[in-house]
Design a protein around this nucleic acid. Structure first.
Length: 411
RNA sequence: GCGUCUGUCGUCAAGCGGUUAAGACCUCGGAUUGUGGUUCCGAUAUGCAUGGGUUCGAAUCCCAUCAGACGCCCCA
């Protein structure tokens, strides 16, 4: 036997059983998002590497060590690790700045990140996401969060925790970073290796450290004082307060998590995550926030934006299993030409019908029918002569012989 | 990139150094050439992720590689 070729590490096949769940996610996405006026956009899986370096941020882990990048000709290409940068690129390139705001887009598709696979994390995974351009007011943040919650509800996922936070604007955030670094400076040598790296690269992420010794340091009163201080400026605070007001009015339950920072560079002001307790350590099903400077950074006109993405594999792992749909009918017959004709007739009328293509014995065909269909349509010599079909309900064993016309009222 | 554990038929598994590698499910065939889902018979791994090594002897011990699970980091 020839050598078997395996799937690539961190990727997997979506088999028929699971595909039913994907259809469910996709159907609900279109339904819910279009109620809010979102239109689907599909961008290429392949983009210029520079898009992510500039868009996602070259200090992020995603860009530094997780991208599938290769050279083709004289250009560097990358398999998209996320889709916000791609959508923004398309927004700018297709002149959507000229469209009447807000511009509301949603997408779904595969993303690629070179990471060590674990529960809820693959190298090829899929995201559904939404992006709204052109509205700086907090109502946009609220709508986007509300839509995420409603989408999850439509999937039957109700017991998820919404966490929000404000990162402030570049100005007030930088001031906070400085303060934080200052107060942590004396403890620098006591921090864990990761935290020492984060100290320069992204001090906000320090707060999230799970190492006990680091946690202990952060508990110190003078450091807590800085962490707990409302560092955001007046405008940012107002924005955040208004968002909370909207969420309260819309009955969205949430908690404010001051340690929520998120790892993509483009966020400012609002960030949020939706988490589940049933996912292990990769517990976020949805992550997003506001990214008011990204469009400008990528060469477009200054345009505020908010959005989020959900990991579809993580959603599916929270869904109950679905049964594969049975066929409406399975034709049991040893007259294949006639069976073929009947099958085609019914298919054209919208029924799902199969028949035995290899002319097996009657009992085998019936056995097959009972496994895959709701009704067995028996088409033997007698039936053909009288232009009828014997219809057997495979659940109740009821059987009656009817004319082909009456068949439609049974199936 | 780091750590821990795991890898026997399509699936779930027993075997843990000594003759032909249990069993169950699925699949296929037969009992049953017009009535299935119940039952009964039968078939299906010259091989134990792959490659080396130790041994008289390896699925069982050792090493490497590959793959998987979970955690760290990070993220959806």
């Amino acid at each position: 036997m020839a050598k078997i070729i395996q799937v690539i590490k961190g990727t997997h096949d979506i088999l028929p059983q699971e595909a039913e769940q994907w259809h469910f996610l996709e159907k609900n996405a279109i339904e819910i998002f279009s109620k809010y006026g979102y239109k689907e956009i599909r961008t290429p899986v392949l983009e210029a590497t520079e898009l992510f370096a500039r868009g996602v941020g070259d200090t992020t882990d995603i860009v530094n060590k997780e991208m599938y990048t290769f050279e083709k000709g004289d250009r560097s290409l990358t398999l998209r690790p996320e889709n916000t940068a791609g959508v923004v690129r398309s927004f700018i390139e297709n002149g959507m700045t000229r469209l009447s705001a807000p511009v509301k887009l949603w997408y779904k598709g595969p993303m690629f990140r070179y990471e060590r696979p674990q529960k809820g994390r693959q190298r090829q995974f899929h995201q559904v996401g939404v992006e709204m351009f052109g509205v700086k007011e907090p109502a946009a943040d609220a709508e986007v969060i509300l839509m995420a919650v409603n989408y999850l509800k439509s999937l039957g996922l109700n017991d998820l925790d919404v966490e929000i936070n404000s990162l402030g604007c570049p100005k007030c955030r930088d001031e906070f970073k400085l303060k934080l670094k200052e107060v942590l400076k004396p403890e620098f040598s006591n921090l864990c290796e990761d935290c020492q790296n984060r100290y320069e690269k992204n001090p906000l992420r320090l707060l999230d450290c799970k190492v006990e010794s680091c946690k202990a340091i952060f508990e110190k009163p003078e450091i807590q004082k800085v962490i707990q201080s409302d560092f955001v400026c007046e405008e940012c605070k107002t924005h955040f307060d208004e968002l909370k007001l909207y969420l309260d009015k819309m009955n969205v339950k949430y908690s404010v998590n001051k340690l929520l920072v998120r790892g993509l560079d483009y966020y400012n002001r609002t960030v949020f995550e939706i988490k589940s307790n049933n996912l292990g350590s990769q517990n976020a099903v949805c992550g997003g926030g506001r990214y008011d400077s990204l469009v400008k950074n990528l060469g477009g006109e200054d345009t505020p934006a908010v959005g989020w993405a959900m990991g579809m594999e993580r959603l599916i792992s929270l869904l109950p299993e679905r049964k594969i749909k049975k066929l409406d009918g399975y034709i049991v017959s040893n007259f294949s030409a006639e069976a073929f004709q009947l099958a085609e007739e019914l298919r054209h009328e919208g029924y799902s019908v199969e028949f035995d293509l290899s002319n097996k014995k009657f009992t085998k065909q019936l056995e097959k029918a009972s496994k895959v269909a709701n009704y067995a349509l028996i088409l033997g010599e007698d039936e053909i002569k009288s232009n009828t079909v014997s219809v057997k309900n495979l659940a109740t064993s009821e059987q009656k012989t009817v004319s082909k016309k009456d068949l439609r009222s049974i199936l």
